[in-house]
């Protein structure tokens, strides 16, 4: 597989926080990635380093085979749309788009104009005065119309309503189909994006915990519901990632699949099998945090309870 990004042993340490902990992964050419994880998991830090907006503490990053840091040749082929992008004070939406046109060699003005209309973005208003959704729209338009060979969207939808988000997803898909490129989409709305992405990269506590095709990821876990004792017996020895119960009924999610014989056996024992959505799977996987890491959050919660 053609890789456009190669990351090896990447570590980023802020004063007392380890944001990225010896991370390694590849990003394939012309593929849409979902870059998923909880807040503070290290997504933005990773994307900032890949686009040379931030610097690693140690480790190597290669983009198009080169170090992206201060490398105009590489940077001009990338676009990073940040959730909290800052714009010049006096800039209007028109200024922001006109600037992007200057710096992104594959910029498509027609697409930008279309999107401005679809998002109903007021061009003459200064960006300071835009609503949160309109602010996000500016970023989304820049990200799509730049047609950069690698585009990063970091939670691009803040303040966008369901209709606007659908416009974004639809436009992303149709434009990607016509102009294949690498897209890395970081999002909390996993259900919404799960059909758009070809591969999933999950980061948790500064470490990559999943790097799979979306299809394989969907098949990673299974959920069974039924009589608690029967379920426990049937799943003996399996890696259970979530368990909840209501009276004598238990719902248990475990990693792995069942073969046809096991399915039949469970079905005849009156146990229901249910698929696990990508969102459920990732929620389950990222909620199992090491105690040390969660100590702070737990302490904070205790504090608020007292």
């Amino acid at each position: 597989m053609d890789s456009v990004i190669e990351v090896r042993n990447l570590t980023k340490r802020y004063k007392d926080v380890l944001a990225l902990d010896d991370v390694g992964f590849d990003i394939r050419k012309d593929t849409i990635y979902g870059f998923l994880g909880r807040n503070g998991a290290g997504k933005t830090t990773a994307m900032s380093i890949l686009t040379a907006q931030n610097l690693p503490s140690s480790g190597q990053v290669r983009v198009f085979g080169e170090d992206p840091y201060e490398n105009a040749r590489v940077l001009s082929r990338m676009c990073f749309v940040r959730e909290s992008q800052k714009y010049p004070d006096d800039a209007t939406s028109r200024h922001a788009l006109a600037s992007a046109r200057l710096f992104f060699p594959r910029w498509d003005q027609e697409l930008a104009d279309d999107l401005v209309e679809e998002f109903q973005l007021p061009l003459k208003r200064t960006i300071k005065k835009l609503s949160r959704g309109q602010l996000s729209a500016v970023g989304v338009i820049i990200g799509l119309a730049s047609r950069a060979e690698i585009t990063f969207f970091d939670e691009p939808y803040l303040g966008l309503d369901a209709v606007a988000r659908q416009i974004f997803y639809d436009r992303l898909l149709t434009d990607y189909a016509e102009h294949p490129r690498t897209v890395v989409l970081s999002s909390h709305l996993i259900d919404e994006v799960s059909n758009l992405i070809e591969r999933v990269l999950v980061i948790d506590g500064g470490r990559i915990i999943m790097d799979e095709s979306t299809e394989d990821a969907r098949a990673l876990a299974t959920n069974v519901v039924g009589d608690a004792a029967t379920v426990e017996r049937a799943l003996h020895g399996r890696e259970v990632i979530h368990r909840e119960s209501l009276g004598r009924v238990a719902s248990v999610t475990f990693l792995g699949r069942l073969d046809a014989a096991e399915r039949d056996a469970l079905a005849s024992a009156g146990i229901d099998l249910a698929p696990v959505s990508l969102q459920q799977l990732i929620v389950r996987l990222t909620q199992q945090r090491t105690p040390g890491r969660d100590a702070f959050a737990a302490a904070a919660q205790e504090g608020s309870l007292r």
Binding site: T31, Y169, L173, T174, E178, N195, I197
Partner: peptide, 14 residues
């Protein structure tokens, strides 16, 4: 493929 992707709102590779 692209028509299907756009209609069902899924990744073209799928």
């Amino acid at each position: 493929t692209n028509e299907l992707a756009a209609f069902y709102r899924i990744n073209p590779a799928t």
